[in-house]
């Protein structure tokens, strides 16, 4: 049975692309819900990269060696680049970066809750690279196969850099764990504080997740929260063993029947508290971001005014004025 494109509706063509595992492109028709979901998700992802610059930037000026300082600056710079890349992907859906930044500043859009925890010691930079970037990669590898073309392509590039970051984080942890007892204790303390928040990054249980079903049908999301979380735990436990660190979960053990690690229950009260704005650093992160934006307003205004003057000058010189 053949159907000509004149006879199929836009909605049918959209579904056919999804069913064929092909990519939706910006010029394709898409359901309004699909567009909104993507804008929300890509913007949240972009905001996370940008807010994520703060906890790690917190250690740039105190990095213990010049090499570590260089690596950390480059990493935070990559995050700014990821933010730009993702804002551009969101802009293909008909919003501007300035609109999205405004939504972040007013709290209408969120960023990943993980960045609402403070980086207290140098070991936190290792733990973030290892656990937080590790969790992010688990999610992002899935997103390289997401149904929206610009988002999927952004993810391919971002994943390459993220896996580099994760190796660097793990390397920091390895150095600490092979160091003095003081350094090892610093590493253990960081893992104690970051393990559960890293597990929370995958979001609520599938049974509680409001967006999961529709997103799975649209192939925006291709693996459920709980399955991704399990993947991450299975990947990370052997790494922790190699480091000689204890993950702070007494229920964590290998389950030979399932072929996976069993692990304890997330403290969902803490999870929702942080989501709703009452994590240790929610207020600080947003205030920092808004202050940077407001302090920079005169610079952005000046750049715009100068560009206008230049344009007027060029126009005047063309007309011989």
């Amino acid at each position: 049975m053949t159907t000509t494109s004149e006879r199929t509706s836009p909605a049918e063509r959209f579904q056919a692309i999804i069913d064929a595992d092909e990519k939706i492109e910006p010029s394709d028709w898409m359901p309004e819900g699909y567009r909104k979901t993507l804008i929300r998700q890509i913007a949240q992802h972009a905001h996370s990269e940008v807010i994520g610059m703060q906890p790690e930037g917190n250690w740039i000026t105190r990095a213990p060696t010049l090499e570590r300082k260089a690596i950390l600056i480059a990493k935070v710079q990559d995050e700014a680049g990821h933010g730009l890349y993702l804002y551009s992907a969101a802009e293909t859906l008909g919003v501007t970066r300035d609109e999205l930044v405004e939504l972040l500043h007013t709290g209408a859009q969120k960023y990943s809750s993980i960045f609402n925890y403070p980086t207290l010691t140098w070991a936190d930079i290792g733990a973030i690279g290892w656990l937080v970037d590790g969790a992010a990669i688990t999610n992002q590898v899935m997103l390289t196969r997401t149904s929206y073309g610009p988002y999927a392509r952004a993810m391919v590039r971002i994943c390459k850099e993220e896996s580099f970051h994760q190796r660097q984080g793990y390397e920091i942890m390895l150095r600490l764990c092979n160091g003095t007892p003081e350094q090892k204790a610093m590493a253990q303390d960081a893992v104690n504080r970051w393990w559960w928040p890293a597990l929370m990054m995958f979001g609520p249980h599938d049974s509680e997740s409001t967006h999961t079903n529709q997103s799975m049908e649209w192939k925006i999301k291709r693996i459920s929260n709980d399955d991704l979380r399990q993947q991450f735990v299975d990947m990370t436990v052997p790494q922790a063993e190699y480091l000689g660190l204890t993950l702070p979960d007494p229920e964590l053990r290998w389950n030979p029947e399932r072929g996976h690690y069993d692990f304890g229950e997330i403290d969902w009260d803490e999870f929702w508290q942080v989501v709703k704005g009452h994590g240790p650093m929610n207020r600080d992160r947003l205030e920092h971001k808004i202050k940077a934006w407001e302090d920079g307003e005169w610079v952005r205004d000046a750049a715009a005014a100068y560009a206008e003057k230049q344009q007027a000058r060029r126009a005047a010189s063309r007309t011989g004025g």
Binding site: G57, V76, Q77, G83, V299, R300
Partner: peptide
């Protein structure tokens, strides 16, 4: 490096 995350634009 003290500017990182404080610049006027990304």
């Amino acid at each position: 490096s003290q500017w990182v995350s404080w610049a006027p634009e990304l």
